[in-house]
């Protein structure tokens, strides 16, 4: 029995930053982690919700006129949605002339999504292709397996950005259909991982070990986002690198510099950004310090852009 639909909060064509070639990145909605630094906070919740873009709004109050009871209130010159409202918000989305009110995500079935991905197939050369990201794509695992199969049938290069926080059974199912696997390992210490992301890193580490010992190991790049005072500590980087070397010193590893601008999306989703505003990007020198730590563990394939 196929899972029929997936909830997708963005499909970004012409993605050029993760993976080879030109790519289309599909952002699956919903994530089991709650990283304090999350760059895509709109992808955390697994529900489809209306959102409001103040910058697009012309304050015509049409939403107020067409709203049903208990759907929203209009205050401070803007709508506030009652997210526990039982029905849909189609009437509000439809009546808004400026698209200031939109859904934060759309449902796709396999055929719709594969058609969407294929729109840019002519650009997928030199190992360009599709990247499944999120949220956590594995949260919609059955759909993911199906769409990966379809992509391979179409000859499309496939990549994933994941934490591997899912059942090993599911992971085993998707591995054969992936050409490139980015796995985030944020914090080695299980307790601290839980503190910063709401879940322990125990299962993540087990799954990384499993994959790095499998035939799929060459397709893997492990990544750690450097978040000041959270992941970017000498201790953490040392532990992660040692852990990786203990499995295979040839493993590809990448450190992602902190980017403070990530906080700008939080207003939209009404969430708090969990990193202190004072922190800036790491300098070249500071980055080098982390690189040196990694090298000192004997890890050979550190990826530096």
């Amino acid at each position: 029995m196929k899972t029929s639909k997936a909830l997708v909060f963005d499909i970004k064509r012409f993605a050029v930053h993760d993976g080879q070639g030109l790519r289309t990145t599909v952002f699956f909605k919903g994530c089991p982690l709650r990283c304090k630094w999350c760059q895509n906070p709109e992808g955390l919740s697994a529900k489809r919700r209306p959102i409001y873009f103040e910058k697009s709004c012309i304050h015509c109050r049409r939403c107020e006129q067409s709203s049903y009871e208990n759907q929203m209130i209009y205050e401070n010159n803007r709508p506030y949605f009652h997210l526990d409202y039982q029905g849909d918000f189609d009437n509000l989305v439809k009546c808004c002339p400026s698209t200031a009110i939109r859904y934060d995500s759309e449902e796709y079935d396999i055929e719709e999504l594969i058609e969407k991905i294929k729109e840019d197939k002519i650009f997928f050369r030199d190992n360009g292709g599709v990247t499944f990201s999120g949220g956590e794509p594995l949260m919609q695992g059955e759909f993911l397996v199906e769409i990966l199969k379809r992509c391979k049938e179409e000859g499309i290069h496939t990549a994933i950005e994941t934490t591997m926080f899912a059942s090993l059974e599911l992971i085993k199912k998707i591995l054969p259909y992936l050409d490139l696997i980015y796995i985030d390992l944020k914090v080695f210490d299980e307790k601290k991982h839980e503190e910063f992301t709401n879940i322990s890193s125990k299962m993540i580490k087990e799954h990384i070990k499993y994959i790095l010992e499998s035939v799929y190991k060459d397709k893997v790049i492990i990544r750690t986002p450097l978040i000041p005072s959270m992941t970017a500590t000498d201790d953490n980087i040392t532990s992660i690198a040692k852990f990786l070397v203990s499995i295979d010193s040839e493993v590809k590893y990448e450190l992602l510099n902190y980017n403070p601008l990530a906080s700008s999306k939080y207003e939209l989703v009404d969430l708090e950004y969990g990193v202190d505003k004072q922190y800036k990007m790491f300098t070249q020198k500071q980055m080098q310090h982390f690189y040196d730590i990694v090298y000192s563990t004997g890890l050979k394939n550190l990826i530096i852009e």
Partner: peptide
């Protein structure tokens, strides 16, 4: 912007 790309005009003035 950071790990993502955004429409410039939808960003806050300070950003």
């Amino acid at each position: 912007v950071a790990g993502y790309t955004a429409y410039f005009v939808e960003l806050a003035g300070k950003l």
